[in-house]
Each structure stands twice: as structure tokens, then as C-alpha cells.
């Protein structure tokens, strides 16, 4: 009797989207708490921690990704409107950086071209296959857009998200120090380079330093989103 009831319960949980959705929110809330607890240590990145918790939970209960996504898709859907919402930080900071708009635009473009060429060539040289190369090429674009571009150029959307996260965390951890060692003194220039390479995670890091740095990084990120979306599909066919 007991056993039968548990079975019914289990069948319900594994087929209803409710479990995947609840798990995602609870894992995120824990990750968020942990991030605050550790004063935003780069390794306590909320996405990284949530993903690790959920993957372990799914493995332990032998739930497939497809079943999990049944529920999680409701959160995933919000990436579209969230991308549109990036228009707001862009609009808010435009006044601040107006006189540097042209050099910033050019520098972000040059940085994207250099970064894309190096990631595709290096990964190809070291034996990564085409789908991996293409998933890597979008690593500097904020995740929702990276997935869209990866899909279009022959990469794997979910793999590209992982590359995006690793790039974000790397840049947030070491970007500022490396640039200072390379003789860059201007905090604005550092913030723009961070936003260009490390998108949302680099921008979030810049916001923890101060609002102006955060705004510069947000601008570079939003510019990078548009430039990458227009440039990458064409650029990768040349490599």
C-alpha cells in the first residue's frame, strides 16, 4: 500500500513540470544566498552553483534533461524579453559616454574580431570539432543571444552557454588585474574591456565596484551583443 502510493507520487513528480521549475528556483535561491555570504566571490557565481546543484539532483534521481526542461522552459522563455530589456541600461548610460561612443564602438568591434579569430583558430589547431569551435566562438556574448547565434552558425546552444559562463567567470576573476599589469590605468577602459569579453558576469562585477564602471561595462556588453549578432555569422565563415 505504502509502496504503491510512493510510486504514484513519483510518477506524478517526474512527469509534472512543477518539480523542474521548483528545483530551479530553490537551487537559484541557495546560490544567491551563497553569493552574498561570500561577498560575491567569482567562484560563487549564481549560475555555476545552481547548475551544479541541479545536475547532481537530476543524476541522483536519474531524471533526463528533457524531463527537467519540461518545467524549466518557463524560466528559459524569459530570456527573450530579458534581452529586449537590455535596452534600458543602454538608454540610461548613453548620455555619460556620448563623447566616447565612436572610439568605444570601434574598440569593441576590433576586440571581438581579434577574440573570435583567436578562439576559432586555437580550438581548431588543438583538435576541437566544428560544433565545438562554433559553440566557443560566441563565448563573449551574453547567454540568451549567444544561444541564438550558436544555433544559426552550427554550434550547440546549450554547450555555448557553458562557454559563455566560463568566459564570464574567468574575466571577472582576473580581467582587471591583467589589464592593470598590461599598463591600462583608466577604470573606464578596463570596464569596457570587461563588458566586451565577459558580458553580464563582467558587468555585474563592475557594478560591485561602482555605478559608473557598471554602466560602462553594460554599454560595452550591449554593443557587443549587437556587433556579434551582425558580425559573427559572417566572420566565422571566413575562418
Amino acid at each position: 500500500m505504502e509502496k504503491a502510493n510512493l510510486d504514484i507520487l513519483w510518477v506524478y513528480l517526474s512527469t509534472s513540470p512543477l518539480a523542474g521549475l521548483t528545483l530551479t528556483l530553490l537551487a537559484y535561491l541557495f546560490a544567491y544566498w551563497l553569493q552574498n555570504k561570500t561577498q560575491a566571490h567569482p567562484l560563487a557565481n549564481t549560475v555555476l552553483v545552481s547548475v551544479v546543484i541541479i545536475v547532481i539532483a537530476l543524476q541522483v534521481t536519474s531524471t533526463s534533461y528533457q524531463d527537467y526542461f519540461e518545467g524549466a522552459q518557463f524560466i528559459h522563455f524569459l530570456l527573450g524579453p530579458a534581452t529586449v530589456a537590455l535596452a534600458v541600461p543602454l538608454y540610461r548610460q548613453l548620455g555619460d559616454v556620448k563623447q566616447y561612443l565612436l572610439p568605444v564602438f570601434l574598440a569593441v568591434t576590433i576586440g571581438i574580431v581579434a577574440g573570435t579569430i583567436s578562439i576559432v583558430w586555437i580550438s581548431k589547431l588543438l583538435g576541437a570539432d566544428f560544433a565545438t569551435q562554433m559553440s566557443l566562438s560566441v563565448r563573449s556574448v551574453t547567454a540568451p543571444v549567444a544561444m541564438g547565434i550558436a544555433d544559426k552558425i552550427g554550434g550547440i546552444a546549450s554547450l555555448s552557454v557553458v562557454m559563455v559562463l566560463i568566459t564570464g567567470i574567468l574575466g571577472a576573476m582576473f580581467g582587471g588585474q591583467i589589464l592593470r599589469l598590461l599598463g591600462v590605468r583608466s577604470e573606464m577602459i578596463i570596464a569596457i574591456a570587461m563588458g566586451n569579453n565577459s558580458h553580464g558576469i563582467g558587468t555585474a562585477r563592475a557594478f560591485t565596484i561602482n555605478q559608473r564602471k557598471g554602466a560602462y561595462a553594460a554599454l560595452a556588453m550591449a554593443m557587443a551583443v549587437v556587433i556579434n549578432a551582425l558580425l559573427l555569422p559572417w566572420l566565422v565563415t571566413l575562418l
Binding site: 537559484y28 547548475v51 545536475v55 534533461y65 527537467y68 530570456l79 544561444m147 546549450s158 559562463l165
Partner: peptide, 13 residues
């Protein structure tokens, strides 16, 4: 925003 990346990130599995 970070929360919204989680479902896709779990795709790493």
C-alpha cells in the same frame, strides 16, 4: 538575469 541562464546551463549534462 542569472536565473534565466540556469535551465540552458543544466544542458551541459
Amino acid at each position: 538575469l542569472s536565473l534565466l541562464f540556469v535551465p540552458a546551463g543544466v544542458g551541459i549534462m
